[in-house]
Amino acid sequence: MAAHDVMPDIELFQPITVEDASAIAARLDGAGWILAGGQDTYGWLKDRAKHPGAMIDLAAIEGINGINATASGISIGAMTTLRDVMRDPLIAEKFPILTQAAGRVASPQIRNQGTLGGNVAQDTRCWYYRRGLSCYRAGGNICYADSPEGMNREHALFGASRCVAVSPSDTATALVAVDATMVIHREGREKRVPAEQFFIGPAINITHMTVLRPGDILTHVEIPNTWANTESYFEKVADRDVWDFALVSIAAVMKTSGGVIDDARIVCGAVECVPRRLRSVEQALRGKPRNEQTADAVAGLASGGARTLNHNQFKVPLMENLVRRALRT
């Protein structure tokens, strides 16, 4: 045969229950790789940058795909495609920022195949790391991005600890804003983790973006009604409207009464290894009207504590401007 596929040799399991998937993954330990839509996975494999021995495909598992209303909110199966998330009327009605965030991921074909679980569990897009270089995140002892010659336009303003990579997921930002809970199957038991704690920075674990470990399967994302039907704003700034990852994104939800903000959750993507809650902005907003003056007054707080790298200073005003835009009506 003249032409060759760029996929490496690798085994494939297609279990039909979460328990079996988890058992296989635990058994294979680091050699097993959970496969959802594959849109993050295949790049790693084709580039020979990660070398798992087997893929454990979750597609045949029933009960972890689909969107359901529950007594307290919405439950979304981890295997639900981004296409289904962005087309779901219930999500659009209650949590439009999730609809918008899902709709801004990659391209239509990637959303048709990629899943919500894969989107939140995907690995960072630092190109040194994706290239397969042995940087800190890959278990080595250097960061190529945070070096004098490093190309770090996409990298972090906050929370760096040797690694300066950022959270790549558009839906993660929205899910932290609406205070979602990640439901994880771990060796026959269910573990529930708030979205905010699901994502972890390099100071906690430099080789993992989330709390998921081999054998853990994310089964559902649950969104409580706490922030349903509140005022909200989502925007993603990227080089191109299709394919490109966020340079900075913002997801905000606000509870207001009589035009005054009672409470808010405001989260920025692509400025830290985890979706970054802008707590000082949230605090400053309480009791203020949602308008231009408030926006101008609090926007500067967004970037407090930012530590810029050689090529990412532009993210500071970008963050502040996104906060302004989120607070205008």
């Binding site: 060759h4 596929d5 760029v6 490496p8 790049g43 084709k46 580039d47 020979r48 897009r125 190109w127 040194y128 994706r130 290239r131 190309m151 996409e154 080089d239 191109r240 409207d241 299709v242 394919w243 490109d244 990852f245």
Partner: peptide
């Protein structure tokens, strides 16, 4: 482009990292 993309030449760089990741056909036996 359909979506405000630059030309492909332009997109080459903007396809964030394609120049670094150098996607190409890796031949394999």
């Amino acid at each position: 482009s359909y979506s405000g993309a630059g030309s492909l030449a332009d997109a080459g760089g903007a396809l964030a990292g394609s120049s670094v990741a150098a996607p190409g056909l890796h031949s394999q036996p």
